[in-house]
Design a protein around this nucleic acid. Sequence first.
DNA 1: TAATATAGTGAGTCTGGACTCATTTTGCTA
DNA 2: TAGCAAAATGAGTCCAGACTCACTATATTA
Lengths: 170, 170
Amino acid sequence: MRADAQRNRERILDAAEEVFARHGAAASTEEVARRAGVAIGTVFRHFPAKDDLLTAILKRLLARLAEDAAALGGADGLHTFFTRLVARAAARRTVVGLAGVDVPEAVGRLGDAVGELLRQAQAAGTVRRDVQRPEVMALLVSVCQGALHGGWDEDLQARTLAVVFAGLAA
Amino acid sequence: MRADAQRNRERILDAAEEVFARHGAAASTEEVARRAGVAIGTVFRHFPAKDDLLTAILKRLLARLAEDAAALGGADGLHTFFTRLVARAAARRTVVGLAGVDVPEAVGRLGDAVGELLRQAQAAGTVRRDVQRPEVMALLVSVCQGALHGGWDEDLQARTLAVVFAGLAA
DNA sequence: TAATATAGTGAGTCTGGACTCATTTTGCTA
DNA sequence: TAGCAAAATGAGTCCAGACTCACTATATTA
């Protein structure tokens, strides 16, 4: 792959993340191209259909989250990850839950990373032992979506997470 | 308002609720008209813009929920309402959180009804006293959205709600 | 039942946005 | 630096879907 192609691909992904985050998945490809500083044809060269672009963004996003999660650990790892994620979702409208787009492996890796945080929290006695991965993931996604669409302020984030963590606590 | 107009208005709202619930807010007005058994012009006579239709549905939905909530009460009222709502969201894709559409009064009334359930649950000693309305609403919306998009099965719904209610418990 | 305002109809207009492709530009290699 | 394949360009095509309106049908009322 030529160097300019590589560079433009990254630029397009960055621009798309920004644009779709701000205006939702209905934002136009034209807008993405403009923000990336390339012609619309270039976007379609890299991502033949709009869906491919959405999928690519989501994949990258999930990969980054999994990395973040993997870098944490200990008694408060889960708590830290959860809190950080919600704050991020509330602040910028990160692309979450794009209807119809699914990227099983990427979701799987994130799930594994969160599962590991859960295991450590349980080992440290921070979280009840009968709690399982699926409901932790479910809560994570739910609260992020809530914060995302609801535009929660910091106080509401804190209060809501406090309830969730009281529920998880040993 | 003429009798046929009244009848068609209801039909259109029912059809729209069904269609948007199934295919999301991006579904076409044509489809709504077809399901309602009226011409597309009729839909636009009642609701000049698509947004008006979406708003009307949301208003009706929120009003119904507020009614449901108002009919409950006692120590387990909040729990019952919460559980019922999540199950409903997971089953049919009820229209929730339509971007850009807001109907302050309707949301307000639902909030009041939920607030009353919270008050009663606290009076009965089912829920901690330091929990406040905003975070309860936030959790409600979040979990519904999660269930909606995630297509949770009954088991996952139960486990997730168990964590939330453990967090709320006195 | 006649008069008429109100409501319904659906072919047609118009627009935004996804996607194409002939042409031009550019990075790479020999 | 010449040659060329890879990449970029952006005007143009195409279509779905929101919305219109001239006309027809019907509920209501006197």
